[in-house]
Each structure stands twice: as C-alpha cells, then as structure tokens.
Amino acid sequence: MMDEIYSDLILDLNKNPMNKKKIVGFSYRDKNPLCGDELEISLEIDKTGVVRDVGFQGEGCAISQAAASLITEQVKNKKVEEVVKMDIETVLKELGVPNLKNNPVRIKCAMLPLKAMKMAAFIYMAKKK
C-alpha cells in the first residue's frame, strides 16, 4: 500500500528537493483547496521560448514536493509548447508511482505542481501574443 504512494525517488526528492528556490520569471501560485497546500512555480524563459531556469516554492506533502522537483528538472531547456503538453501519467510513472492515478485524494498532490507549471507557461504564451 505505502509503496504504491511513496517510491524511493519520492522519499529522496522530498528530503533533497531540486530547484526549490526563488527566481524571477513567469510565476503561478496554486492551492490545493482540500488541504490548503500552496505551491508557486516560476519559469525564466528566453526570447526563443525556451525555459532557461525554473524554481518552485511552498510547503507540501512528499508527493507534491517530489513531483515539483521532478517536473522542474525536466522542463529545463524545453520549449514552452512542450511544457504545456506534459501529462500527469508520465509524471507518475517517472516518480515510480503509476497507480497513484487511481487514488482520487493523493493524485491532487502530484497534480498541484504540474498545474502551476502549465499555468506559468500559459501566462508566458498569452503575454507573448
């Protein structure tokens, strides 16, 4: 039961997060209304629409913190068009918890950073137009 929710990668990323820092860029702060956890993701995007740096801030459970670390690491040097196409199933697979998609409560924890990151990318795209 526990290993369907907490992989070794999640436990490691929770203890040693990546990209947990404040940067100036296109930001979006989202909140999980169920638990009140808040997370902000900021993207620094260059003139060609490529993510050059990324940071996240906020407190949350191991799943949301690990998902934030993983996806922020993955979007570096990607084009924003690719960022908005990232899907939750791939994120869960890479976190080592594919079955979390069947957990209606805790999947929201993994969705929180992904939603915030996509929103930050959408804000950039809207401003560019």
Binding site: M2, C35, E59, G60, A62, I63, Q65, R106, C109
Partner: peptide, 22 residues
C-alpha cells in the same frame, strides 16, 4: 520534517484513522 498528509497516509496504512490538514 514530515508533512501532515504523509503522517496520516502512513498511519492509514497501519489501520489508524487520524485527520491531517488545516
């Protein structure tokens, strides 16, 4: 250093019901 939801989830796996969050 352990978020409340993670504590509650761990306890749930041991058959213990508690509440976590705000």
């Amino acid at each position: 250093e352990i978020h409340g939801h993670d504590v509650a989830e761990y306890l749930a796996s041991k058959g213990i019901s508690v509440r976590s969050g705000h």
